[in-house]
């Protein structure tokens, strides 16, 4: 049901009607901002890139097929923006853990746990980080991830399981 609404909004963009742009923005702005932040983009750049993603959505809305789900298309745009960013910024600033905001929804103990989790994530390869974040944090269905990676769903499940195992191991090492 939610998806249908998203696709309808994009369809209206294609017809030059941007009156519902705010709905889409407020629904996805923190999600796409987090997408960039958890992949190591500094705050200011992540903000600019978030706006850039919405701009690409606006300009590409006319060519969007409304019979297809919006979210994978949206994340593909974010992913392309991220690739461009890393290509442009080969000597990018290293993101400090203190830059992250874990204060809103967690207590002090949990904040520390999340900081260690983030540090553990950074020890994984870029591909593994992307896959685990897509599967767990962004909660993309395995079927969509398998389509994106052009592998079977069972392969995705196995990879995710293996990455979690590895991440747990790193996490436990850092805790001790």
């Amino acid at each position: 049901m939610v998806r249908i609404i998203d696709e309808e909004i994009i369809g209206s963009f294609g017809n030059g009607d941007f009156s519902k742009a705010d709905l889409l923005y407020h629904k996805y702005k923190d999600e796409v901002f987090s997408f960039f932040r958890y992949r190591g983009v500094i705050t200011q750049d992540a903000e600019d890139m978030t706006i850039e993603v919405f701009e690409r959505v606006f300009s590409g809305a006319r060519g969007f097929d409304t019979s297809r789900p919006f979210r994978p298309w949206f994340y593909q745009i974010a992913r392309n923006a991220l690739t461009d960013y890393f290509r442009r910024n080969t000597k990018r600033r290293i993101v400090d853990i203190d830059d992250f905001d874990f204060t809103d929804e967690t207590n002090e103990y949990e904040q520390e746990e999340y900081q260690i989790l983030y540090k553990s994530l950074k020890k994984l390869s870029a591909e593994d980080q992307d896959l685990i974040l897509m599967a767990k944090f962004h909660q993309f269905p395995y079927s969509e991830i398998s389509q994106h990676l052009s592998v079977s769903e069972s392969v995705v499940k196995t990879r995710v399981h293996r990455i979690i195992k590895k991440l747990t191991s790193i996490y436990n090492e850092m805790m001790t």
Binding site: D30, Y114, Q139
Partner: peptide, 16 residues
């Protein structure tokens, strides 16, 4: 592993 999976799912959104 279960906890790590759950933590990943519940990682707080970074606010703009």
């Amino acid at each position: 592993e279960f906890k790590i999976g759950r933590m990943l799912e519940e990682m707080p959104l970074q606010k703009t």
